[in-house]
Design a protein around this nucleic acid. Structure first.
Length: 577
RNA sequence: GCCGCGUUGGUCAAUCGGUUAAGACGCCUCCCUUUCACGGAGGAAUGAGGGGUUCGACUCCCCUACGCGGUACCA
């Protein structure tokens, strides 16, 4: 009788959490939140043979990463626990209802062994009916309490003969319900078999468990994948016999997520074959040792992952494609969910991440990028910054030092970043709304300023390594071939003079100042700035890529910039002779 | 085989009987940029087929085709 909106996600802990699974969670979650309801995690571990250790924790971790945290669940508890069906079975919950059904004549004991059932299928198989069902047409030929003499049933039961309890489905009836996405769906009971409700090991099958638990947990809406549609009539019958059809939750069967090429449900295999993740997070099967990469490890932001999943089968009717979780909660609606499945497009998925990377301030993901850098052994502090900012006086002394020494000294002298010096270059970052009504964003660290500068050209998190790595580590190789052909003594001289100028100026300027000074000098030397810009870029980053060259120099620090120019100048004169 | 669900460009998709059938991704061209991106402007590309209903169908109905899902003591 509860009017409270309550939804559940009910996975079985058998492996990695699939894209489609996360989307099912998402739609459940959005609907629950939008209606001020609750979202429940229930673990359907009724098949003991398929249990995979660690899978439950993994699922919970995935939900957490996605920001789709349940209000109740095995890890959190709640007033409707336990939330694991194996534990509920131990309480005798399912058996009670199964027996109630037998009492009422809606179910019966079946003593057939799996082998006997197999024989039956073999025996009655015809080209027209390749898989005969255990149902109204055939059950009279089987060993069950419907057709065995009562004393024989009692004897078997008494002797402890293994049995299952099956639902008795009467033929020639119409069963229909209203699906929130598809409208009215009708089935005839003729094609429905007598599904097993309680297995020989005492565990319920999904069919019994889902109905009983949805009732006991007062679930108001049940969203699940389309693959469940064919078993809906069994569930409806169970509701009718057990709790009343009018108490049934509102159902919705979500369209499938299809593989990008050809047709069919997206599987982990497709991901491996086509080179993209299918699971939310890394998953290694403890039995086979088989590993699969997840969206998280591939470098997706959870915001982007959720966003792209939301759009795979739903839209708000406008052209908006980028949604925050708050917007999704506000705007999501089941009547705009599609009926048809959607092919997964990894290119579009990457686009979503790119958009999020660009729109979010680097502070939102800099720890993730830093972890990536740490992993690669790339420092995340700027070489030479302290020496440079401290004073300009020692610059000439440094000239004597050879490259290697200068480099390692610079690295070592920088154990920490001084917060004070980080605010200096901020005007470059036009994208940051420094003046707004919102509480002031914390100032960017030097590392974050670098990320802000390069994020436009990063699609996935690991892209920051090649795009920002050179700020902290000298280029492993210098593309000399790009400058050598047009290299002249005049240019050599220019750069020598440039270094001198830089050393002389009282402080290291921002990008604009540096550019102005550079152009002035170029004019004085009568060289087109364009002929000098590329060489400077190569000197600083090693190749023909990266943000504006003076933005790089400004963030690189004076000392490091000079060292890099000098280093390449050396290489150039070496190879000249 | 049977049952159910589905079908608008290569992909995601808008349209809820009347539009030159939006928009996005990807692709191509150009502009911006003394690199690479970002950004901007264009371009190619779509209603599975056949019948109806209607003054008028992408839209409603039927048939066919195709695809998918199910047809387990798996979920």
């Amino acid at each position: 009788m509860s009017k409270k909106v309550r939804l559940r996600f009910a996975p079985s802990p058998t492996g990695g959490l699939h894209l489609g699974g996360v989307r099912t969670v998402l739609y459940n979650y959005l609907f629950a939140r939008q209606h001020g309801g609750e979202f429940i995690l229930r673990i359907e571990d009724t098949d003991q043979t398929r249990l995979v250790p660690g899978a439950e924790e993994y699922i919970i971790d995935c939900l957490k990463w996605c920001g789709l945290e349940p209000d109740e669940g095995p890890h959190k508890g709640g007033p409707f626990g336990p939330y694991r069906q194996s534990e509920r079975k131990a309480l005798g919950i399912y058996e009670k209802y199964a027996r109630q059904l037998v009492q009422a004549g809606h179910a019966y004991f079946a003593f057939d062994t799996p082998e006997e059932i197999e024989q039956m299928r073999e025996k009655f198989k015809t080209p027209e009916n390749p898989s005969p069902q255990y149902g109204h047409a055939l059950r009279h030929r089987m060993r069950n309490s419907l057709h065995l003499p009562e004393e024989e049933t009692l004897r078997l039961l008494d002797a402890g003969t293994p049995y299952t309890i099956r639902i008795k489905v009467d033929p020639s009836q119409q069963v229909s319900f209203t699906d929130m996405i598809r409208g009215q769906v009708t089935f005839s009971t003729d094609g429905i078999d007598d599904k097993v409700l309680l297995k020989a090991d005492g565990m319920p099958t999904y069919h019994l468990a889902v109905v009983v638990d949805d009732h006991l947990m007062e679930i108001s809406h049940a969203f699940r994948g389309e693959e469940w549609l064919p078993s809906a009539p069994v569930h409806i019958l169970l509701w009718r016999y057990l709790f009343g059809e009018d108490k049934m939750p509102h159902w919705a069967h979500l369209p499938l997520i299809l593989r990008p090429d050809g047709n069919g449900k997206l599987s982990k295999r497709d991901g491996d074959r086509l080179g993209f993740p299918v699971f939310a997070m890394n998953w290694t099967d403890p039995k086979t040792g088989e590993a699969a990469t997840g969206f998280r490890e591939r470098g997706f932001l959870p915001e982007a992952f959720v966003n792209l999943l939301a759009m795979l089968g739903w839209n708000d009717g406008t052209n908006q494609e980028i949604f925050t979780m708050a917007e999704l909660i506000q705007k999501f609606s089941m009547d705009r969910v599609h009926k048809g499945g959607a092919k997964f497009d990894f290119e579009k998925a990457k686009w979503f991440n790119h958009e999020w990377l660009k729109q979010l301030p680097a502070t939102a993901y800099s720890p993730l990028v830093k972890a990536l850098f740490d992993q690669q052994g790339i420092p995340t502090e700027v070489p030479g910054a302290i020496a440079d900012e401290a004073t300009a006086k020692e610059t000439t002394a440094d000239e004597a030092a050879d490259e290697a020494a200068a480099e390692s000294a610079a690295m070592e002298s920088l154990p920490i970043i001084l917060p004070g010096i980080d605010n200096i270059g901020i005007p470059i970052l036009g994208a940051v709304p420094i003046l707004s009504d919102e509480p002031a964003a914390p100032p960017f660290t030097h590392f974050e300023k670098v990320l802000e500068l390069v994020k436009d050209r990063c699609t996935l998190l690991p892209d920051f390594v090649p795009n920002a790595g050179f700020f902290f580590q000298r280029p492993a190789s210098i593309d000399l071939a790009a400058v050598q052909p047009k290299w002249t003594p005049a240019k050599q001289l220019f750069f020598v003079e440039l270094i001198r100028q830089w050393q002389l100026q009282p402080s290291w300027g921002d990008a604009h100042t540096l550019e102005a000074g550079f152009k002035e000098m170029a004019a004085a030397a009568a060289i087109k700035p364009g002929d000098l810009l590329l060489p400077l870029r190569i000197m600083l980053v090693g190749g023909k890529f990266g943000p504006h060259v003076f933005d790089i120099a400004a963030l690189l620090s004076r000392q490091e910039t000079i060292d890099r120019v000098r280093h390449t100048l050396g290489l150039l004169s070496e190879s000249k002779s």
